[in-house]
Design a protein around this nucleic acid. Sequence first.
DNA 1: CGATGACTTGACTTCGCTCAAAGACAGTGG
DNA 2: CCACTGTCTTTGAGCGAAGTCAAGTCATCG
Lengths: 235, 235
Amino acid sequence: MAEFLGTGPSLRANPFGPGPADAANLLAPRHRSQIASIAASLQFPRGRLIYREGSDADCVFILANGVVKSFRDLPSGKRPVMTFLFADDMFGLAQNGRYMNSTQAITPVTLYSIDAAALADMLRRDAELAVQILCKVTHELRSALRHAVLLTRRDALGRVTMFLSMLEQHSQPGPNSIIQLPMSRSDAANYLGLSLEAVSRAMSLLERSEVIAFEGRRNVRVVDRTRFDKIATAL
Amino acid sequence: MAEFLGTGPSLRANPFGPGPADAANLLAPRHRSQIASIAASLQFPRGRLIYREGSDADCVFILANGVVKSFRDLPSGKRPVMTFLFADDMFGLAQNGRYMNSTQAITPVTLYSIDAAALADMLRRDAELAVQILCKVTHELRSALRHAVLLTRRDALGRVTMFLSMLEQHSQPGPNSIIQLPMSRSDAANYLGLSLEAVSRAMSLLERSEVIAFEGRRNVRVVDRTRFDKIATAL
DNA sequence: CGATGACTTGACTTCGCTCAAAGACAGTGG
DNA sequence: CCACTGTCTTTGAGCGAAGTCAAGTCATCG
């Protein structure tokens, strides 16, 4: 089970109080093994659904590696992507015992599946742990708010650039900064509230104007950092 | 609701597990008085800023009554509204000791101001309370996600109708269902990612087509519920 | 009752969506 | 190893919806 990964699940988030600017690991070793004791480690191939909106929320998940998208299926056939989830993210928190959205692996993923009832129990007994989880959820709340701000931009170019800038934080922190785009253009479009074509055009434009350079379709390097940042933050 | 300020702050949210469909009061009387013991009750007039983005996050707030908007100030002069906060909502959770956005009263408000350090302390000692707060933050996370979904709609009419439908849940639950619009058109526009004119036009259109009727500029009655719901949910 | 700010309405422009087709890529099996 | 196929992506043309600019109307408060 979870022993495979040895150290057990971890979570990243910014703490409430003053501290280093970037996200730190939240869980103490004792909490990690505590959670590991009620968790199972699962592997999913690319494209596999993890759970479906509306189904019984038996489990909470922590992503060990890979990328997951969370989305809704609307009557019209649209599929807005609400978030992309990366390593050390938690998801599957329920409302009234049901999942609020569907989730799907967009790369091969490894994740911890944690029995919701057992976790709830554990939280009620361990205030320290509950506070850590609270911190993580707050972190995700903030990122949802940022997403909303992103969506108020009207120009495709700005949205896409902001999106790249967000992805940069989840890529290997090489100084040469290659940004990985694990998701399809279509997923990105659904996250950005744009048509797939608009996303493609915006990226082409960024490339033509030598702000970024593609290395294959799923890897981007920032060529002109100054202009890149200007577009990203010039809301 | 928070009619009796004497009883201390309260919070509404949907619990994680199975239960009644709508939000319930989260805090047990003992928690309410516990929080009250480290809280101060404050009054703010319409338009007053509560805190500014980037300032030291000393306090967490619980809104007793009135409506607050949370927004950011962007270099361009835009002011996206991230959320509207209603009675029994909590806000002011910090990142690294700083507020992430500004908040302003848009009606006269009464709120509880709670020392952040003292609250953190209390949570670390009382797992039950920490879980309640966790539940509330999760509730707000969900509403932020809904907001993001709303923003992926491209048509002004749909966004505005969805917005009205959301406001309906915060209005007095009279069967006659008068929806109150406590905020200006401009605030609504900034929340919806539309121009103020687009909001106005959408509302005029809804009125002309007899889906809704205005009773003054800040009160709306749904006239044709069927069509209203169809527009609101027909994403 | 007049002034200030909020809201509505109209005309014009722009940008992203839709539809359509061609081009690149990855995995498969010969 | 390479051709084949289905999928993902890019690019183009035309249209429509929302933004912007600019008056004009309404309400609210001194």
